[in-house]
Nucleic acid binder design. Structure first.
Lengths: 144, 144
DNA sequence: CCCTATTTGACTTTATTTGACTTTCTTCGT
DNA sequence: ACGAAGAAAGTCAAATAAAGTCAAATAGGG
């Protein structure tokens, strides 16, 4: 996949968070923009589209001199009460891989198996399977 | 019977998937349309008629700058031939782990999820699940 | 000839990039 | 201590890039 500028900035930030001890980083918006030779508001765009709470991040910032943007990653858990469809389950798995809570080998295998196993199921059973897998995975990883 | 444009595009995509390591490709709709000198919506037509889930393909896409269409092929489980029960499936997974064809991380996770997911299924559905998982796993590991 | 699959293109929706303008802090000089 | 200047971040809307939708037109097989 050809990466857009926004994608590259997103990755860069995620790597920084991975490497941080506290799963939290502080950046200067202008500095990061400089690194990627883009306008500062591009960074704002990336943060506001990719680092939302629903993806397991929350952000704080301060303007003016010595300003910063702080991004903190927290552990999400699948909300089993939500109706899971295939896409949601896959998003969940992708997110876990991204956060290194699930290695990509295991994650990809799981996606293939779920796809394969759900292919000949009626809709209700398929949904049931998605939910069960989400639940089983959460249990296995000790989320919740 | 002369091959239609749609047929040729379909073939082309399938060859790309065959050649890919992950049985998954990402294309740019407009680029592919360019290759075949046709309108972009022709590509959409091909994808929506030939790469449906019921044929064993899963698609995702993103619009806007650096957009893409991702197509993943998975194996559709056909009717169950082998009678698989839980113990056999677990033996199978253990064997794969012993032979280092499946790392223990993935194997253990899979066992956990299958157990969890099968716990509230009626007998017939449970057996079906075991079989599907065995098949999906075989496929993923390129056994057969 | 009729029916279905294909082809085409106008229009819609979504995502990204950019830049001008606004708001909020900090610092520095009086 | 206070106000002005400067430093950073935020907001918003326009411009551009791609993919999706839908329906009319056409082609081909039976």
């Amino acid at each position: 996949m050809k990466k857009s500028l926004a994608d590259r900035i997103e990755q860069y930030i995620k790597v920084l968070i991975d490497r941080s001890e506290e799963k939290q980083i502080e950046i200067q918006r202008a500095e990061l923009a400089e690194t990627f030779s883009c306008v500062p508001s591009q960074v704002t765009y990336v943060i506001s589209t990719r680092f939302q709470e629903k993806y397991g991040y929350y952000t704080e910032s301060r303007r003016g001199g010595k300003g910063f943007v702080r991004i903190t990653r927290f552990t999400i858990s699948s909300d089993i009460c939500t109706i899971m469809d295939g896409d949601k389950l896959f998003d969940f798995i992708n997110e876990l891989m991204e956060k290194k809570m699930l290695d990509s080998e295991s994650g990809n295998m799981l996606k293939h198996i779920v796809l394969s196993a759900s292919s000949d199921l009626a809709d209700e059973h398929r949904k049931h399977l998605y939910n069960s897998v989400a639940r089983g995975l959460s249990e296995y990883l000790n989320l919740n």
